[in-house]
Design a protein around this nucleic acid. Sequence first.
DNA 1: CAGCCATGTCGTAACTTTACCCAAATAATG
DNA 2: CATTATTTGGGTAAAGTTACGACATGGCTG
Lengths: 290, 290
Amino acid sequence: MAANASHRDDNLLEDIQTRLETLNKSERKVAEAILRDPSAATRYSIAALARAANVSEPTVNRFCRGFSATGFPDFKIRLAQSIATGTPYVGQNIEPDDTTAEFSDKIMLSTIANLDKARQALNPQAIAHVIDYLIQAKQISFFGMGGSASVAMDAQHKFFRFNIPVSSYDDALMQRMIAAGAGVGDAIVLISYTGRTREVVDIAQLARANGATVIGITNPDSPLAEACTAVLGVTAPEDTEVYMPMSSRIIHLTVIDILATGVTLKRGPDFLEHLKKIKESLKATRFPLN
Amino acid sequence: MAANASHRDDNLLEDIQTRLETLNKSERKVAEAILRDPSAATRYSIAALARAANVSEPTVNRFCRGFSATGFPDFKIRLAQSIATGTPYVGQNIEPDDTTAEFSDKIMLSTIANLDKARQALNPQAIAHVIDYLIQAKQISFFGMGGSASVAMDAQHKFFRFNIPVSSYDDALMQRMIAAGAGVGDAIVLISYTGRTREVVDIAQLARANGATVIGITNPDSPLAEACTAVLGVTAPEDTEVYMPMSSRIIHLTVIDILATGVTLKRGPDFLEHLKKIKESLKATRFPLN
DNA sequence: CAGCCATGTCGTAACTTTACCCAAATAATG
DNA sequence: CATTATTTGGGTAAAGTTACGACATGGCTG
């Protein structure tokens, strides 16, 4: 896992994109040639790329060095990895005249990219702590409003399989009532994209004052994060683009998956039998596979 | 977008792993040398790799050709992509004694891998059709049961912003009632992981018999898929592993994102104003940024 | 108009690939 | 069963590419 971590964080293509402005004339030509068709660039020789960019070979070489590669071949390897990480459309927004194939791909890729960013930002220690809290809880409530309501509901559905009492609420009043009645031994998981919704922060403070364990799946530097016993930070991807959907829901869901898996693992092997029974119980409702 | 699709599906590292048995003595030495440290292999020259594997340079070259590369440099590029595509753990299941960091990473990576598979399998034409159906609909209902209930709910939340009447149901009886009362001009979107739940198939047939447009987001070869007017196939990733969560929900959600975006785009620029207003309306509920 | 930075030309070194050859293993035949 | 074809696996060496460094030139700035 650590082995290739070093290559992970430097998304070369993104770098090229952002540094485009700061480059001088001929290096920009190289950058543009690469961005025009990044995957083709990985197949070019230095001579071919030089020709495509209308510059000389050493210029290409210097360009590569500028991006802290030891030379052109090294640069190509890094570029190849960067492409595979899935960013032909890095930063490229959805345009009104995109074809269905284009915007579909952009959405998929940006979702993937965001998940990967979240993966890198993951804090295993914090996750381990939250799992411990959840295991100790006598009762768990998942709260989410607006777009996070469905995440809370999904969490309930997943945690339902452990035999702790679990509920989810998308209604502010219900949430407030639960928070008011909560106490030591109760865990409340608050899911919020921004972590800035007043109502949600209020509820967190109320529950915590009553002695409940309050867990936030939210933006790490937000009022909500401060109000929680433990926080799983999901740095919100920028929401500047009109058409781009929020991928935060999807990251939140994946975090829920991780928590549920963590709880399952801690429960030990005898618990697996219980899970299998639940799975079996669904078979009767289905058409058999041929 | 199509440009790099060709390289996408061939996971070289996996290939090497599986074909290891079928290789002859010295080619196996090469394979082993690569597998010993794949990311280091991308930095080797052909001579260095030959030395590491105790074979001659042409042997390495022949090995590369065996994996349908045009030569060693091409092979290295493909290897680099294969590593970046994120296969430290792909295929590797979660083990009971995994650390938090390990299983978290595995879940993230497998989710990403599944999303990428879905991306490749995407059928833009089918998506375009479904978008057309949704735009023409006078009313849209999203149906999902069990784990898909939250997906349906999320879809409702997203489509709510377009000013068509939208609802979502996770209750079989309600779904049946809606299906019974549906008619031409109504669109019903059924979300199901397996596509084999009897109840869901029934409902699809009922709604369709009444003239409603029935859209399935489900497994393409399933009874449900056959009962629908249009299907967005999401080939279900294998569900063999006990600990691994189903990533199908996440794929379904992303498909919902794509549909919602498609509808937004078709609605044209004046509609963006409407969306902005909705966004603005939420500001009052939040703590300001600083 | 002097100096410096940006860019290109050319030659060389490193690397990859091809062509050729030998050895071992396998199959075939007397 | 032995001996000889034949195929397969793999290495050596030379030819062909590709990339890199040193140096030269041209354009821009002060």
